[in-house]
Design a protein around this nucleic acid. Sequence first.
DNA 1: CAAAATTTGTTTACAAAGAAACAATCTCCC
DNA 2: GGGAGATTGTTTCTTTGTAAACAAATTTTG
Lengths: 151, 151
Amino acid sequence: MDMPIRTADQVELDRLNSALGFLMRLAQLKIYERFFEEVGEHNLKPGEFSVLWVILHNPGIRQSVLGQRLMIKRAHMTKLIRALEDQNLVSRKVPDGDRRAVEITLTPEAVTRVKQASQWFFTYEESVGANLTGDERQQLTALLRKFVGLG
Amino acid sequence: MDMPIRTADQVELDRLNSALGFLMRLAQLKIYERFFEEVGEHNLKPGEFSVLWVILHNPGIRQSVLGQRLMIKRAHMTKLIRALEDQNLVSRKVPDGDRRAVEITLTPEAVTRVKQASQWFFTYEESVGANLTGDERQQLTALLRKFVGLG
DNA sequence: CAAAATTTGTTTACAAAGAAACAATCTCCC
DNA sequence: GGGAGATTGTTTCTTTGTAAACAAATTTTG
């Protein structure tokens, strides 16, 4: 009868169904969507939070290294850091050893703020993948860690 | 001693190390990066390809349904479809039943083009996750499929 | 049936992220 | 020591995607 497709779950994806890159993109988008639904505007976006968190645990880290680890391009990192600086959350210091580089540290306010934010952030993170069993979630985490080359 | 961190793999991520959302974002970025390294400008970007692929397999699909399945927002979908229309790859038709909607079909050229593009696209997709064993890759795919709700 | 609410797609304005060109510094090597 | 080349960060421009307001058609409901 050639009934037009009316709902998303009737859509035929064919080979896309087992394409790793495609599935990963979908997964990521789903996580983001849920993040903004649940956490709303908690005044620190996930990107900002992870940047601040990493600086907290690596005081004086250089912009370039931070960017490499979080896969943020230099051009974009410049903007992120400046925005954080404008909010008085980080301070930049050009080290004596290498005057091209910039070393970044949290301000005391930011330390408090990040520790506080970490509560809801990780609470959310733990709720991600709630439709999986504990084992599956565990496996997924391990596989992703291997996939991205973390330990 | 306070040696500054010099390389990305010395960075302490602490709890971020097992945060599913974080790992997923990293994984996705890694896939994209490799995609552009390897496939370069093959004249069809991954987003465009998947849109066209899904239209190929669901001729006459509505913009809204397409967007729901691929998690593309309406506003953005409008632009994507227009761009594809400008390249003479899709045609739009307002169905009689519901004159708000738009049904999309591939042009004959696009059918050829997508089938051709599918060769390198899926070749790339199969190379994703080459640092995992076959079993692991298989598991990861299955877990992601469950995660995103693809039965 | 008519008013209210919803769906669908578009437009406009904006935010997030990348690419390329650039300047300053540093490293390497002759 | 002094250029050639690499690194580091910034700037500018462009692409990609989202948000909010809107218009038109449809569905709901009183």
